Simulated assay, not measured.
Amino acid sequence: MNPTLFISHGAPNIILSDSKSKRNFQKLGKKLTKPKYIIVISAHYVTNDLKIIDPNANKIMYDFYGFEDELYKVMYEINSDKDLALNLMNKLKDLDITISIDNDRNSYDHGVWNVLSLLYEKLDIPVLQLSIPYSYTPAELINLGEKLKSFKEEALIICSGGVTHNLGDMSYSSTVKTYAKDFNEKIKYIIENAEENSLLNIKSDINFRKNHPSTEHFLPLFIAYGSAINKKGLSVNSEIQYSNISMESFIFDEK
């Protein structure tokens, strides 16, 4: 059985850095057993209802601005697979999950290829990207993850987002903001101790909105948690960049 990963992907230029997080993600990639395919959910693909990108997708998008010119020249070979995509859809429908193909989405956002390029220098594994269904409640997102568990014999599940994500209050200071540190520690405790009720009610935490003015970067964590057979995740990276951007990442069901 393959594990589930929740990766706090940080800024797109992590791939150009020499950061602790980059090194840890590269080390993690070397430990992973090669799956038949990868199912990925990224904070940068949000739809009202659950969708899967065009099964013919085979390119990356540079969905960011203001970064180094070098970043817009990065090439990364990545492909979906029509048969695997249709099989995933049909099996989810059999599990009472409504899903449709998004014919307008035919490339992979940086929350996908940025992470994959750190885990796999060269990728020869099909990648099926699901959207984050914004109409779902946290409990429904966990349930979606539960339904994805049945694919883990063949697929590696990667949920790409962020334990914290307040770009409006980030800075280049080396001093970590207290609200980010406290929230990060709380999430780490919740995940490492499988505190599902605390996770379900996390939006009521005093620091939630300070760390997530919008929720899309946190939502993949619900899906990752739901897809875990052993709900206790293990931290594989701990770093806070730009004073408030947590890179905290977890592996569930590690072999």
Rank of each mutant, 00 (worst) to 15 (best):
D49L: 13
L219S: 10
N106I: 07
K149Q: 13
E77I: 07
F252M: 02
P3T: 08
P138G: 10
N166D: 04
D102E: 09
V112N: 13
N184Y: 06
S117K: 15
E185A: 05
N197L: 08
N24V: 05
L200I: 01
F183R: 08
S131Y: 00
I60E: 11
A194T: 00
E121A: 14
A194I: 03
Y76F: 13
R209N: 14
D49F: 12
K177Y: 02
L156W: 05
S227Q: 12
L119A: 13
E140C: 04
L84G: 12
L86P: 03
Y189G: 01
Y65G: 10
T164L: 02
T164E: 02
H44T: 04
L50Q: 11
G161P: 07
H110Y: 11
F252L: 01
L50W: 06
A194H: 03
D96N: 15
N211C: 04
N56M: 11
V40K: 08
K82L: 12
D104P: 02
Y72T: 03
H9T: 08
V74W: 00
G145R: 14
I187T: 01
I41A: 07
S42W: 00
D18E: 12
F218E: 07
I229E: 10
I60Q: 10
T215H: 03
I97G: 08
V176E: 08
G29V: 14
S214I: 10
T175I: 07
E154C: 00
G29H: 09
I187L: 02
D96Q: 12
D205R: 03
F252A: 02
N201R: 05
T164A: 01
I158E: 10
F250L: 03
A224S: 12
S160R: 05
K82T: 15
Y172K: 03
R209P: 03
E70R: 11
A57W: 10
Q26F: 06
I60S: 12
Y225T: 08
S173M: 01
N166I: 05
E216W: 01
S204A: 11
P35D: 04
Y136G: 15
L5A: 05
D109P: 09
S173G: 04
F67V: 09
S171N: 07
S117R: 14
M247V: 00
P3D: 09
I190A: 04
K186Y: 11
T33L: 15
E196G: 02
T47P: 08
G168S: 05
K91A: 06
Y108I: 07
N237S: 11
I245W: 00
S238M: 07
Y62W: 06
L92D: 09
M75E: 14
